[in-house]
Design a protein around this nucleic acid. Structure first.
Length: 113
DNA sequence: AGGCTGACATCGT
DNA sequence: AACGATGCCAGCC
């Protein structure tokens, strides 16, 4: 039985990938979307994170856009929580932007492969 | 029923 | 190289 890529599976897949992000590392929406096979639909990844927000068991603060900007911090219970947590993991954040983002970048399509 | 928005990314000019 | 416009898919008005 071929695993049908149900939409629900898409969300769960996002959760799994985000949850597998190593501490002190960050990833981008596009990379996750591409890893899921929905390249281009990075927006859905963001939507999935919103849906995962109530779940709360997902380090969604480790997911940023391809520039390393904390675009979604505004959606946290507390906007500062995202940056605080990133710094807590050893990630430096300046002006809502991850420092050395490309160095901390964690690509599921390569690392998780 | 149709159209807009949205935690983004990529293509085109 | 930088800016503008379009695409993706789902939810909401």
């Amino acid at each position: 039985m071929a695993e049908k890529a149900d939409k629900k599976n898409f969300f769960e897949d996002v959760y799994e990938v985000v949850r597998l992000i190593p501490k002190g590392r960050v990833t981008s929406y596009g990379s996750i979307a591409s890893y899921l096979g929905s390249k281009g639909s990075a927006r859905m990844v963001g939507w999935a994170l919103i849906a995962s927000h109530p779940h709360s068991k997902i380090p969604t603060h480790r997911v940023v856009n391809r520039v390393g900007m904390l675009t979604g911090k505004q959606h946290f219970d507390e906007p500062n929580a995202m940056q605080e947590r990133l710094e807590q993991e050893g990630i430096k954040v300046e002006n809502n932007q991850v420092v050395d983002f490309e160095k901390l970048f964690w690509d599921p399509a390569k690392e998780l492969l």
